[in-house]
Nucleic acid binder design. Structure first.
Lengths: 265, 265
DNA sequence: AAGTGGTCTAGACCACCTA
DNA sequence: AGGTGGTCTAGACCACTTT
C-alpha cells in the first residue's frame, strides 16, 4: 500500500499561482503544511531560511513571513530568532476543544425545541449570592429550560440572573432565542465576557427524569458565569449535557488534508 | 462605585512608545483590546479606518493591519472588506478549552509519580482491532498506568499499542516519560498526529478502586488515537480522570487585563 | 467616485545565535 | 562576521461596499 510517494524525489518546489484568487501567503502556507502532513518535513527538521524562500518562490520577505507565521500560530512550526524555523513535534497540551457540537445541538432553531420548565423570581441562596456578587437573599431570576434537538431531550439548563427592574432587557433572556444568540454571536449587547468550565457529574433524580436517562448516569456539567459591561456578574448557571449527545473533539498535529477542505483565514 | 471613568472624555489617544522594547503592533493591539475590555468600545461599534489609525498613531499601514489582525484572530474584532472593522459580540461557540490542567497534573515530573499497573503483549479484541486498523487477534502491547500527582491517584491510563518487532521504539512508550514528552512537546519522533475526544463515564469497580473513589462516581474519559508518519494508527487508549482533580476552563470576550499579565505573540 | 479592508513589494534596520 | 528571524516603512494595486 501507498507506493505512489517515492521517498526521495528531487523536490518539486510547487510554485505559487498568481492568477488563482487565493492569496500567495495562503498558498505557501498550504504547501508547507502539506509537506509536514505528508511527512516530507518531519519534527525537528529545519526549514529553508526566509531568504531562500524569497528566492525559491519569488515573493517578498513580508509575504514569506506571513505564510510562515500562520503555521507558527497553528503550532505546526517553531521559529527562533537567530537560529531558524523548525517543524514542531506534536504536543498534547496544544489540543483545543470547542463548543461547536453544543452549538449545533441547539444552534439551528429549526430542529431544536425548548421547554421552559420554570421561570420565576426568588431569593438567592448562599452559593448563588456568592457567584453573582450580591447579598444572600437578594432577588434573582431563576430559569430552567430543557433543550430538545430533534424532539429528544439533550441539555438541561439552569440559570440565575440578577434581577434588576431598571434593566428590563433581562426579560428577553427568558426566551430560548437568547441562548441561540449567544452561540451565533448575533447582537449580544448586555454581556461583555464570560467564564466557562466543564466538569462531570452524576445525574440527580430530577435531571435523569427530565433528560429521560436511567440512573445512575454521568453527564457533562458546563458552568457559565457572565459579566456585564460594568464587570459585575449578571448571570450564573450550568448546562447538564447527556454525554451520548455531546462530545468534545480535538486534533493535534497536522491532519491529512482532505481534498475538498479549504483552510480559513 | 466606579466613578473614575467619566463616560465621555475627548478620547486620550494613548500613543506608541518606540523606545520600549515591545513591538508597535503589540502595543496598538493592547490599546484597542483594552478599549474593548473597558467598554469604551462596545460590540457593534465601528473602529476608525486604517487610514485614520495611520494618521493617529504615525505607523505604517502594514503595522496597523498587523495589530488589528491579531484582534481579529482573537475573535475580538470583525473586519469586513469594503465596510469597516467592528467590535464582535461575544460568542459562546468561540470558547476553546485546553489540556493545560491535565498537563500540569503530570507534566512536572518532580511531583508526579506513576505506577505501571500492567504491561504485556496480548491479542486485540474486536474494538481494539478496529480502532488500530489491524486484524482481530493481532498482537498489541497493552499498558495500564496510574498517575499520581502529589501521591494521590488522579488519572488512570489504558493504552493499546501496535506490536511491531521491527519498531523497537515502542518499548520506550512503556515508560511514563513517554507521556510527559507528549505534553511538553519534546522530541516525539514516532507520532505524526492524533485525535482526541472527551466524554463522561461512570467509573467501573476497578477504576474506582485504583482511583480511590467511592461508587457511584463520574469521571472524564479522554480517548486518544495516534497515527504514525505512514498515517496508520499506532496507539489507541484513554485516560480516566477524576473530575475533582481536573477541570476544563475557557473565557469568552475580553477578560479584564490583569496588571502583571503579558499577552503573548 | 470615494471609502473601506486585503494583498504585496523591495527594501531597511534590529536582535539574536554561531562561528 | 555572517546567518537567522523580527519589525517596520511608504507606498502600490486590488476587491468590495456605499453613495
Amino acid at each position: 500500500m501507498k507506493e505512489n510517494l517515492s521517498g526521495s524525489r528531487p523536490k518539486p518546489p510547487q510554485s505559487i499561482d498568481r492568477d488563482l484568487y487565493k492569496p500567495a501567503y495562503v498558498q505557501l502556507a498550504d504547501i508547507v503544511r502539506a509537506q509536514v502532513a505528508s511527512g516530507e518535513l518531519r519534527p525537528g527538521d529545519q526549514l529553508p531560511s526566509e531568504a531562500q524562500f524569497v528566492a525559491r518562490y519569488g515573493l517578498s520577505p513580508m509575504t514569506i513571513r506571513r505564510a510562515l507565521n500562520i503555521l507558527v500560530d497553528e503550532g505546526v512550526l517553531n521559529a527562533r530568532q537567530g537560529k531558524g524555523t523548525f517543524v514542531r513535534p506534536i504536543n498534547l497540551a496544544q489540543a483545543t476543544f470547542g463548543l461547536e457540537d453544543l452549538r449545533s445541538l441547539f444552534g439551528d432553531e429549526a430542529h431544536t425545541s425548548a421547554r421552559l420548565v420554570e421561570a420565576r423570581v426568588r431569593s438567592a441562596d448562599e452559593l448563588t449570592a456568592r457567584k453573582l456578587g450580591i447579598a444572600r437573599g437578594g432577588r434573582v431570576i431563576f430559569i430552567r429550560r430543557l433543550l430538545c434537538p430533534e424532539g429528544r431531550p439533550a441539555v438541561y439548563h439552569r440559570e440565575y440572573l440578577i434581577y434588576d427592574p431598571t434593566r428590563p432587557i433581562v426579560e428577553s433572556e427568558m426566551e430560548v432565542t437568547a441562548l441561540q444568540r449567544l452561540f451565533s454571536g448575533r447582537g449580544e449587547t448586555v454581556l461583555k465576557r464570560g467564564e466557562l468550565s466543564i466538569e462531570t457529574t452524576l445525574l440527580t433524580d430530577e435531571e435523569a427524569r427530565l433528560l429521560e436517562v436511567k440512573l445512575p448516569a454521568s453527564a457533562f456539567r458546563i458552568e457559565h458565569l457572565f459579566y456585564g459591561f460594568d464587570d459585575q456578574p449578571l448571570s450564573w448557571g450550568w448546562f447538564i449535557c447527556r454525554s451520548d449527545r455531546l462530545r468534545f473533539r480535538a486534533h493535534v498535529g497536522v491532519a491529512a488534508p482532505e481534498p475538498g477542505t479549504e483552510h480559513s483565514r
